[in-house]
């Protein structure tokens, strides 16, 4: 237990510190890197809870794919920091108000969950109910009780994907594309013609 406690406090500290640094770092690329650190240590916390499947999904999906594209975009942006900080004082009151309301709400939700939620009745949430590995446990509820929501979520993603493709797909005329089948099928017969040229005349198309 002592090792787990050490691991928990270390991961928790890193998660919160990285979260703070995401918003306070001056360089946006550093912010994204801290965000990745936060994701990663959150995955560690999932492992400590016994929810190893969720932890791995968090790393594969968020850290391995989403955050890479994030980093990709942020690195290519040309952000002028001086200009960004100009309106800071102007936006401080409204920003502070929104942030304060969100914080209050989060505290209320957390307090309610702690006193009245599932965790209050059963102690710690059980990552592997009935002794089955939690991958199987998730599968059992996801494909039975929540199958409609699961399918709906998939459908929403599909619609979003089709939408993105429809919005960005343009068929530019005159673009030369590679057709590998055509290249392979090309023979000397189809690819070249022999022309007899008389001296002093040249050829015209």
């Amino acid at each position: 237990m002592a090792l787990q406690a050490i691991a928990f406090y270390m991961l928790a500290f890193v998660t919160i510190a990285a979260g703070l640094l995401v918003v306070s770092a001056r360089n946006p690329v550093h912010s994204v890197l801290f965000l990745i650190t936060a994701f990663f240590s959150a995955a560690g916390l999932f492992v400590l809870l016994g929810a190893e499947f969720l932890a791995m999904l968090l790393i594969v999906v968020y850290v391995g794919a989403v955050a890479v594209l994030f980093l990709f975009v942020v690195m290519m942006l040309d952000v002028d920091f001086a200009e960004l900080r100009q309106g800071f004082a102007q936006y401080l009151p409204i920003g502070g108000l929104v942030g304060g309301i969100l914080t209050l709400e989060m505290v209320f939700v957390a307090a309610t969950v702690a006193t009245n939620g599932a965790a209050a009745k059963n102690g710690l949430p059980n990552a592997s109910p009935g002794g089955v590995p939690n991958t199987e446990a998730i599968g059992r509820v996801l494909y039975t009780d929540y199958i409609f929501f699961f399918q709906l979520a998939g459908l929403v993603l599909l619609v979003a994907m089709i939408g993105a493709i429809v919005l960005t797909l343009r068929h530019k005329p005159g673009v030369k594309r590679q057709d590998i089948g055509k290249q392979v099928a090309r023979t000397p017969k189809t690819g070249m013609t022999l022309v007899q040229i008389k001296p002093g005349e040249g050829i015209s198309e």
Binding site: F53, M56, L57, I59, V60, V63, G64, A65
Partner: peptide, 8 residues
């Protein structure tokens, strides 16, 4: 999954 995560 761990291997996939680490390689990604």
């Amino acid at each position: 999954l761990y291997l996939l995560a680490m390689s990604s």
